[in-house]
Amino acid sequence: MVERIDAKNIEPMLKKLIDIAATVEPNLSDRLKEIDRWAGQEKAGFLTSRKFLMAFLAEIIEDAQIWLTLQENEIQSAHEEYNEECQQRLAQEMTPPLAYWYSELFPLWFRSSDRKFSQWKNCLKSGKHSADDATELNLLVEKIQERGGNVLCRKIIDFSMSTDLIVSGRQSNTSLCVQITKMGESEQMREKIKLWEKTLKCWDIKRGLFVSLDPANFPDSIQSASNLILFNSDRMKSEGYKSFSF
């Protein structure tokens, strides 16, 4: 769970992270500068009025803090100055989806050109974004966690990587990227699946699951989807994309 941040603290926290990242990873520093120019310098009242924008800013600040801490730990460990017990504790606390996010997808995002970034930045800042599938996603996350699975949600993977959830099951440390939709069987959905596969390949995401839920069949479709996601997280091959409808 990402901690909330007071809107008045957004800009100073971004500035601090920009300075730290400049000596560790210039690409992250540059991406944070872009975010600061776009939203960090807005007045606190404006930011507070944009719930989803604030949620994204809190996520990016926490992710940058954790990623930079992990890099520092790696450097200390390489010089044998880092406490081995502390390193083991950090590894135990890092779930497979978090490890996948911080080791692969997050650094890939800030080191790459994200062609969707300007589009969803404008959407968040204008206040037009609405999480119309939030209820279904929250129920699905609860079901997966109840059965011992691990789940990660991030605005970046949702908007840029066609992924609502990164999931790992109880029997595998390999993460699965899951896209959820409420669209029924149609030509439009088939086109959406093609675009989804193309996006995952663009981000070098090897394992993906596309799940279409039937709003008229809740909560049964949520239960079935959670079973399907956990099964495929544990059993799906190292590479592949699958789609299912309920």
Rank of each mutant, 00 (worst) to 15 (best):
L228T: 10
S103W: 03
F244A: 08
K242I: 15
M1F: 09
S130H: 11
A216H: 03
S130E: 14
A216W: 01
K198M: 13
L47F: 15
Y82E: 05
V2I: 13
V2L: 13
T174W: 09
I61V: 00
L209S: 10
M183A: 10
M183T: 15
S226G: 04
W101Y: 08
Y241K: 02
R31L: 15
S243Q: 09
G184K: 01
S172H: 03
P215F: 07
Q76R: 00
W203F: 01
E3V: 13
R115M: 12
R4F: 14
W101T: 02
L140I: 11
Y82Q: 07
N138A: 04
K242F: 15
P107W: 03
E142H: 13
R37C: 08
A39C: 12
S238M: 08
S130P: 07
V151M: 02
E239Y: 10
K116C: 13
R50H: 01
M54I: 13
L230V: 10
Q119R: 03
F210R: 01
V141E: 04
V211C: 00
R115F: 14
S245C: 14
I10W: 06
R147N: 03
I205H: 03
M161S: 00
E62G: 10
H79K: 06
E34D: 11
I35V: 05
L165S: 03
K155M: 14
M1N: 01
E25L: 07
R190G: 11
I205W: 04
G127C: 07
E42C: 10
I157E: 11
L230Q: 04
L165R: 02
C177K: 07
A99I: 02
R207E: 11
V167E: 01
R235Y: 15
L213D: 10
A21N: 09
Q188I: 12
G184A: 01
K33N: 14
A44R: 02
C202S: 09
S221N: 11
D158Y: 12
K33Y: 07
L28G: 02
S77H: 05
R31C: 13
G208S: 03
L200V: 09
L195R: 02
K116N: 12
L57D: 11
R89C: 14
C202G: 08
T174G: 04
F159D: 04
Q223W: 01
